[in-house]
Nucleic acid binder design. Structure first.
Lengths: 147, 147
DNA sequence: TCGATAATAGACTCCATTATCCTTTATCAA
DNA sequence: TTGATAAAGGATAATGGAGTCTATTATCGA
């Protein structure tokens, strides 16, 4: 079971981070990304499709086709990717699953969880893929070391 | 979709919090809890079963049966309930889903997410159901106001 | 001791997420 | 203009979490 994000969202984040480590403008194929990140190709295709529709990626069909970033890496925040794939409900729903959790009718951990959730949101909202590029490069590099 | 915790875990947390608001030693039936919290009875039965096996609740069969807390409310931390139902993997898995995320091979948000995750853990580890009793009472009270 | 009650336990169903497959569309290069 | 390539898109399948059902076991009260 994945925490917080759906599997598709995890894959999408990984894929965009991966693309961001490539030389600017280089078109990369779904199957290359899938192979590198060990993600099912067809499933990844669906996710990249959604990201293209949202403008986070740009796709090219045909030979010499592939994917590139849809805008400059400084303008792609992690939250944009999350929002495109999973939406924003994680930032509004009650962590205990209580219905109608709000300031008027807070759940027992409403305030404390609210703070944590806000920090998580802020992390995703102020980190762009440009900010984490170096870290992405080393993480990606570590991936296929054993296999 | 539920965030962080499984549906069963959410229900379990709600149920234990509810039981903690009742007079000490009062035995409450699954169906009463289910009705109050709007949870499917049979599903809740499964969850309370697990919590009984872990000693968080104590169950009594037969007429005059039902559930009570397995130990004093000061000794039941929220994390105990989470651990019993969902385990601890949320505190170890990579938020981006990268394999082998660790200090040696950190993912791009490893440090920042690590801090947030630790705060979440600490919240669950230092709040006992005794600590949040008053808040639980008012949240539970707010539940069936409309229906 | 017997019937009613309520939790236990395991099998089973349902559905959303995850994953796969195949056809269509667009693009490139020869 | 044609063949190869690669993404788009729709249909289908598998998996796992969520929820249901039924029989069994334990306990109480009459």
């Amino acid at each position: 079971m994945s925490i917080i994000f759906s599997k598709g969202c995890e894959y999408g984040l990984q894929a965009v981070l991966y693309i961001s480590t490539l030389e600017r403008g280089r078109r990369i194929l779904i199957k290359e990304i899938a192979a590198k990140l060990q993600i099912p190709v067809h499933f990844l295709a669906k996710i990249l499709q959604q990201l293209s529709q949202k403008g986070i990626l740009k796709s090219y069909k045909g030979s010499k086709g592939g994917f590139v970033l849809g805008r400059s890496p400084e303008e792609i925040r992690l939250i944009d990717i999350v929002n495109a794939l999973d939406g924003m409900s994680i930032f509004t729903e009650c962590i205990l699953g209580f219905p109608g959790c709000s300031t008027e009718h807070p759940c027992p951990v409403h305030d404390r969880w609210g703070k944590i959730r806000t920090e998580a949101f802020e992390m995703l909202a102020d980190e762009t893929i440009a900010d984490v590029k170096e870290k992405s490069i080393s993480k990606i590099a570590s991936l296929n070391m054993d296999s």
